[in-house]
């Protein structure tokens, strides 16, 4: 019961912070291109505007799945982003462990995939095939790199335990162990693929397949899908910061700093990681083809297995 209350209290916070993250990302991206860019609260305007538009469902679509999947995708993304935030509030017990968070993130991508392809458009069918290929290539290194962390902190996958381990250790995972450093590199390199930004935004390429899976969505469903993507980005960067670079641990425990100060520090850290892994690649790289992206992500697989082996050995 308490868990449900905390989670539902976190939902508006996740909503506001993830849309703010998207706004800051767009503003920085525009400034790097010598433009002025939209105001930072532009995603809020977009959300409200899209809810005011009419939504058309094509005749060839399986309308039940088409309508349900944006709602499910947005819900699972928001919960996946809310669990790490809520875990700071309760020191007792665990609201959810890493398996749940990563499953919800993957489920939101699968919901987008299924909903997009259920609209009967040939572009969406191509987007579906591409997204399946991408998911196969980036989900596996992502999972394995997180598992090697869990092995270090006493064979437990609970999110709280990993953070407590860093606090007891007095320093962050990425600085302490070489296996965790390799796992960090793998995780950070998988973030552009999981977030769907250039160079890996192949399933939703604007110029090739005219937005692929999102092509038949409009109005409130498009707003929910964009919210799902923003929440996924926020969840990934927040996870990356707290799992690998939990800086408050260096300041010797959370008794001296308040809960809100630690939360603000983690959000700021997630912002820095978002700048490095989402905004900068979006600006300076071109889009890859699906065969090239698949080969690139397969390079990450040996790296993640290496980090797993090193953590078992004890380094």
């Amino acid at each position: 019961m308490f868990i449900l209350m905390v989670l539902s209290a976190m939902c508006p916070v996740v909503f506001i912070i993830s849309l703010l993250f998207e706004g800051i990302d767009r503003k920085l991206h525009a400034r790097m291109q010598k433009r002025i860019g939209p105001p930072i609260i532009q995603p809020f305007y977009d959300f409200v505007k899209l809810f005011g538009k009419e939504s058309l469902i094509p005749v060839t679509a399986a309308s039940g799945i088409n309508i349900a999947s944006p709602i499910l995708a947005a819900a699972s993304s928001i919960i996946a982003a809310g669990i790490p935030l809520a875990s700071f509030a309760t020191t007792a017990g665990a609201i959810g462990d890493l398996i749940l968070i990563l499953f919800l993130l993957a489920a939101s991508s699968i919901m987008i995939m299924v909903g997009g392809s259920s609209s009967g458009n040939p572009f969406a069918a191509i987007g579906f095939a591409r997204k399946m290929t991408m998911m196969v290539s980036y989900e596996v290194p992502l999972f394995i790199s997180v598992v090697s962390l869990a092995i270090k902190s006493g064979f437990s996958l609970a999110y709280n335990d990993i953070i407590q381990f860093q606090i007891q250790l007095g320093s962050c995972f990425a600085f302490a162990f070489p296996s965790a450093a390799i796992a960090m590199i793998t995780f950070l390199t998988c973030i552009p693929a999981a977030a769907g930004v250039v160079p890996f935004d192949i399933p939703e390429a604007k110029t090739e397949v005219a937005h692929g899976l999102l092509i038949e969505y409009g109005g409130p469903y498009l707003a929910l899908l964009k919210l799902a993507k923003s929440a996924t980005n926020f969840a990934l960067t927040f996870l990356a910061f707290t799992l690998f670079f939990y800086l408050p641990a260096i300041f010797k425990g959370n008794s001296s700093l308040g809960y809100w100060a630690i939360l603000a520090l983690c959000v700021a850290g997630a912002l820095v990681i978002m700048f490095l892994t989402i905004t900068v690649p979006r600006t300076i790289f071109a889009r890859l083809k699906i065969g090239q992206a698949f080969k690139f992500n397969l390079v990450l697989l040996p790296l993640s297995i290496l980090s797993l082996v090193l953590s078992i050995v004890g380094m």
């Binding site: 790097m32 600006t283 071109a286």
Partner: peptide, 16 residues
């Protein structure tokens, strides 16, 4: 051409 391959920054730079 830069826009077609997804490279927005080069597109803005060239037009500048």
């Amino acid at each position: 051409m830069a826009y077609e391959i997804g490279f927005d920054t080069l597109f803005m730079y060239t037009w500048h």
